[in-house]
Amino acid sequence: MTLTLRSGSKTYPDGTVALTPTDLHVEPGEIVSLLGPSGCGKTTLLRLVAGLERPDAGSEIWFGEDNVTDLPVEKRKIGMVFQSYALFPNMSVRKNIAYGLKMQKLPADEIDRRVAEVLKLCQLEPYADRSIAALSGGQRQRVALARAFAPRPRILLLDEPLSALDAALRDKLRDELAGLLRTFGITAIFVTHDQNEAMAIADRVVVMSHGRIMQAGTPEELYRNPKSRFVATFVGHAMQIDGEISGSRLVTQGGSLQLPDDAAGCSVFVRAEDVHIVGDGALSGRVESVTFLGTHYRVGIAGIASETIFAFHVGQPPPSVGDNVRISIETKALLLLPEQADAA
């Protein structure tokens, strides 16, 4: 089932513009993440698709060939997974999954068949008759997904589905969630503020800010080719190296860099994994922090740009605070971004 949003927008009675006119198309079976900070409009967009909010005049929402703009939520045939899962604690896993099917007044044998199907898909068969209170966080997440999928919705919507879990469990279940969504083969949209979650699960990521879409693309496209400083800094935490640009060279406090192109009107950014501490680097600075992160050290270096530049250092020993170091950055790793790219 395709999803198409045409000039979708939402303005609240007090004049607050939560979503500016926005176009979005999602292909059948595609998993799309709406990614952005709090207040960027991603949850508003999800609620418009769900029918939980009424859009402004001129907005259109299509499920395939059906215009659902004016349909109430109960008639849109969507599945929803909420941050809290919203499971019934007094019911077993089986009864939670069957609840929506009973509301559809399906025959008992059809309900049993569908419940058995999703129990197997979500690897919940051993827990079918347990109460929700007896399940782990990961098992509850699978029940919420199974319950949402059992009625065979046209589109599945997920609102921060992993945010209620602790960090270790969230990392484990991220891959599991991606696998389940692809097993279902259903068109899915999920909201998150966690870039790692979005990039690990989604086929395509839609980055939002201040009620509008800043850029959409595959996770790799967004990471390698951001079109604005907002996308570069939000997806992958790119850092600006400021200085004076002359043609294809950047002169900074700590030295100079060869740029990939003439950078007039651009700002220069780099990611920490592309900053290398070496003996003969073109830039020099002073180490002001060293943080051990298990697989590498995160080294903060002052004196290269007006803000601290970080490098990921692998190997031992790491430099010490106060050391003078030299760094190198490959020309192809530099991101040249238009200075006015976020000002639309």
Rank of each mutant, 00 (worst) to 15 (best):
P219D: 01
E220P: 09
E221S: 03
E221T: 07
E221W: 09
L222D: 03
L222Y: 12
L222M: 06
Y223G: 01
R224S: 11
R224G: 06
N225V: 07
N225C: 08
N225Q: 13
N225L: 11
N225A: 14
N225Y: 15
P226N: 02
P226F: 05
P226S: 04
P226Q: 06
K227P: 03
K227E: 10
K227I: 10
S228K: 03
S228L: 09
S228W: 01
R229V: 08
V231K: 03
V231P: 01
V231L: 04
A232E: 08
A232M: 00
A232K: 03
A232V: 03
A232Y: 02
T233L: 03
T233H: 00
T233N: 01
T233I: 01
T233W: 06
F234C: 11
F234N: 02
F234S: 00
F234T: 02
V235G: 00
G236Y: 02
G236K: 00
G236R: 08
G236T: 02
H237W: 08
H237C: 11
H237Y: 04
H237S: 14
H237M: 13
M239I: 09
M239S: 05
M239Y: 09
Q240I: 05
Q240L: 02
Q240K: 08
I241N: 00
I241M: 00
I241S: 08
D242W: 01
D242H: 10
D242N: 12
D242V: 04
D242C: 07
G243T: 08
E244M: 13
E244L: 15
E244S: 15
I245K: 07
I245L: 07
I245D: 09
I245N: 10
I245F: 02
S246A: 14
G247V: 13
G247W: 10
G247M: 09
G247E: 03
S248G: 09
R249Y: 14
R249V: 15
R249P: 13
R249G: 13
V251L: 13
V251W: 13
V251M: 08
V251G: 10
T252P: 14
T252D: 14
Q253W: 04
Q253N: 11
Q253G: 12
Q253H: 13
Q253I: 11
G254I: 09
G254D: 12
G254V: 09
G254C: 12
G255A: 13
G255Y: 00
G255M: 07
S256W: 13
S256E: 15
S256Q: 15
L257Q: 11
L257H: 04
L257N: 06
Q258P: 12
